[in-house]
């Protein structure tokens, strides 16, 4: 039977909208490879973090707008926040160390690093609770004034997200015990680390925003 091969996209007419294919077969992905260079899990984490960014951007614009209005009383940061910040920074370091251990195939090292990171994360959350207690001791509650309202809301929302990160670390730990990670296959660790580092940076951002802007 006679057949006809139509060249659908002549002269790169669709390159502008992202056509990656070339030639009549148009194949842009070899079997088993994903069409974008980023792993599916990491892409999912990135999309989630984009949403988290929008959430905090919304809080930020509300906060900055409120600062301009009358009746703004700022307070100084509770001292424990400095310790918390240091703890969280160190936890990013330990997690990166863990990731580098698994890259050389050291699963036990990975677990040690992840356990330490999770412990530091919980310590940070405990520290945030202490910060709340310090503020309460100064008579600053959720509804006391706009600054304290924003402080409690932002730290609570960040804390909830970080708690999610601790859960993710626990899953990584579980998977590691099940022997799922190897030097060449540890996307779960990388994805979890990306999330964790983002939460770390987010806290630095919030700390600066709340007290030094």
């Amino acid at each position: 039977m006679p057949t006809l091969v139509l060249e659908r996209h002549r002269g790169g007419s669709l390159r502008g909208v992202g056509g990656r294919g070339r030639g009549p077969s148009g194949g842009d992905a070899a079997p088993g490879r994903e069409p974008t260079p980023v792993g599916t899990g990491l892409l999912g984490v990135a999309a989630f973090l984009a949403a988290v960014t929008m959430l905090f951007l919304a809080f930020t614009s509300a906060y900055l707008a409120r600062r301009q209005e009358a009746g703004w009383f700022a307070f100084t940061p509770p001292s424990v926040l400095w310790i918390n910040t240091a703890v969280l920074l160190v936890s990013s370091g330990t997690l990166d160390w863990a990731r580098r251990r698994i890259r050389v195939g050291d699963a036990a090292g990975l677990r040690q690093g992840v356990e330490l990171t999770a412990a530091l994360g919980l310590l940070f959350l405990l520290g945030q609770l202490v910060a709340w207690r310090q503020l309460a001791a100064r008579g600053l509650f959720l509804r006391t004034n706009p600054h304290s309202s924003f402080f409690y809301v932002l730290t609570a929302v960040h804390g909830a997200h970080l708690l999610g990160g601790v859960v993710a670390l626990a899953i990584v730990l579980l998977h590691s015990w099940q022997g799922r990670y190897a030097a060449q296959a540890h996307a779960g660790v990388t994805n979890c680390a990306a999330y964790w580092h983002f939460m770390d940076l987010l806290w630095l951002y919030l700390f600066v925003l709340l007290f030094w802007v």
């Binding site: 909208v17 992202g18 990656r20 294919g21 992905a29």
Partner: peptide, 17 residues
């Protein structure tokens, strides 16, 4: 949906198709 469309297209299914 976002991840699926970006990463799970079958062979030959470019964004332009």
């Amino acid at each position: 949906f976002l991840t699926t469309v970006l990463n799970l297209r079958t062979q030959g299914m470019s964004m332009g198709r």
